[in-house]
């Protein structure tokens, strides 16, 4: 039932899962309770890595987009789309965990601080990218259009972030990460680093799996049209 490729993917996936479980153990048992927020701060170990992954996905999307413009390759379209999907997933995760964290600490489910606002806009952009992909016929035209959008999104996110920061800095509730990290105790810091590492690996693997799925689907579709003529 499983061929060797599937078995390899399954193995990689299982290894990554154990990494995740290990990280959750770190987050719950190794990292101490925070003096001000109590145990609820632990959601940071989900929130911050998701945020970093969500934004790293935009970088990956840009790289794939630039490559697909230069190489005119249809395969890169599949990878780009997979990256956008994974990016959307982690952006939503960031927003959800951020909201849940905000409720007990700031007293509100939502606030227009720079990071949340930018993440929200990034979610809209990923969704728009996927909408654009879905509403065009397959082909080099679509690849080019999506590539340009991918570059545009990556170029714009820092500008959005900076402008919202300047708009809201003085209204901002307590930051999630202190600038220097110097008041973060080592156990907390290391758990966070581990989390970033694990989640990035996981996201990369998701992109890989998804990209291969899309390529397979494209192959099947072209094969079915090809057999029509005979």
């Amino acid at each position: 039932m499983f061929n060797s490729e599937d078995k390899r993917e399954f193995l990689i996936g299982s290894v990554l899962q154990t990494f995740i479980i290990f990280h959750w153990c770190l987050a719950f048992f190794y990292a101490p309770v925070d003096i001000h927020q109590g145990p609820v701060y632990r959601i940071m170990f989900l929130h911050v890595p998701s945020a970093i992954t969500a934004f790293a996905s935009s970088l990956a999307l840009c790289v794939f987009s630039v490559l697909s413009l230069r190489n005119r390759s249809e395969r890169l379209m599949a990878w780009s789309k997979g990256t956008a999907e994974v990016g959307l997933l982690f952006t939503i995760l960031t927003l959800a965990t951020g909201s849940i964290w905000g409720r007990p600490t700031w007293g509100t489910w939502w606030t227009w601080d720079a990071r949340l606002t930018t993440t929200f806009l990034l979610a809209l952009l990923y969704a728009g990218y996927l909408l654009l992909y879905g509403s065009m016929a397959p082909g080099p035209g679509r690849t080019r259009v999506c590539a340009v959008l991918g570059i545009l999104i990556f170029a714009d996110v820092p500008i959005i972030y900076k402008s919202v920061t300047w708009w809201r800095t003085l209204h901002q509730p307590p930051s999630m990460i202190r600038q220097g990290g110097s008041t973060m105790d080592p156990e907390i810091l290391w758990t966070l680093v581990a989390g970033i590492f694990v989640m990035s690996l996981y996201a990369a693997w998701l992109v890989r799996v998804r990209g291969r799925n899309i390529l397979l689907a494209d192959e099947i579709e072209s094969a079915s049209y090809a057999s029509f003529g005979t």
Binding site: I35, R178, D185
Partner: peptide, 14 residues
């Protein structure tokens, strides 16, 4: 009028 907070993470025991 805007309210400003401090930002820090610490273990209990301070």
């Amino acid at each position: 009028l805007m309210v400003k907070h401090s930002e820090e993470y610490k273990k209990p025991g301070a």
